[in-house]
């Protein structure tokens, strides 16, 4: 699994995805799994997303304020700049990278452990499509729930910026509000949400691929969960570039 070429993995990945999106044996069971994954992958990530967003918003505001210490520039530009960086980049890409670490390693190690303890074989023997049953609910749950995380991150991030800005007296509340409403482009939010959905698919499917095909024991499970995080992060960055080019220019 390690020494094989890139195209081998890409091919195997797409074959896995074909198996993942085959017709479910029983919709109600898959739906239950989906709800479980919403909680596991989504709701349980609320805390970490809130924390990084509030700090991100705060840091962006301070940095922007530091950079435009020019009496000719109006202070509300701090609000504008903070808003745009959060909406365009941080709440989608940054959050996706953090989640790729958290969600990716948890998916890869869960599936990897199931593989090495023969739980996946047990499912197969029962006549269950193990890839579909285990992976599809994870991918769908992330694609449905992550946009909500992104929206929350935007709100929390901007609030963090406002809080630190007013606490350190670099900007007043009125100016900040003026800033975040100034020349506001709603499409930025759409753009961010589209990216989030794509990133959600990437992080869950790549992590599932590495977990599902583990061979060996607990050592390999650990290795493949590291690999899952590294590769899904790289692919997320690549698609960030591609989507930005496609959607913003």
């Amino acid at each position: 699994m390690i020494k094989r070429g890139l195209f081998f993995h890409i091919g195997k990945y797409f074959l896995l995805m074909k198996k993942v999106f085959a017709k479910p044996e029983k919709h109600s069971i898959y739906y239950q799994q989906f709800l479980k994954e919403i909680e596991n992958l989504g709701v349980n990530s609320l805390g970490i997303v809130a924390i990084i967003s509030i700090f991100m918003g705060a840091v962006i505001t301070i940095q922007t304020a530091y950079n435009i210490e020019n009496p000719l520039l109006p202070t509300y530009l701090i609000g504008v700049a903070a808003r745009d960086s959060i909406l365009l980049e941080f709440s989608s890409t940054m959050v996706a990278l953090i989640l790729a670490g958290k969600v990716g390693s948890s998916i890869a190690s869960e599936l990897g452990t199931m593989r090495v303890t023969e739980q996946i074989d047990a499912l197969e023997i029962m006549g269950v499509n193990s890839a579909g049953y285990l992976i599809m609910p994870k991918i769908l749950a992330a694609m449905v729930f992550n946009p909500l995380l992104t929206l929350i991150s935007m709100v929390v991030g901007i609030s963090g910026g406002w809080a630190i800005g007013t606490l350190t007296d670099v900007i007043t509340t009125q100016e900040f509000i003026l800033g975040i409403r100034y020349a506001f482009i709603p499409y930025y939010i759409t753009y961010s949400l589209i990216k989030t959905v794509v990133f959600a698919f990437i992080m869950t499917s790549i992590a599932s691929y590495y977990g599902y095909y583990v061979e060996g024991g607990s050592l390999e499970v650990g290795r493949s969960s590291t690999r899952a995080v590294v590769y899904s992060s790289v692919v997320i960055l690549l698609f960030n570039l591609i989507l930005t080019k496609l959607l913003l220019s």
Partner: peptide
């Protein structure tokens, strides 16, 4: 496979 019941050496419980 729906007609097969299999016990794995390690149990393989979920």
């Amino acid at each position: 496979r729906k007609e097969i019941g299999m016990l794995f050496q390690g149990g393989a419980l979920f």
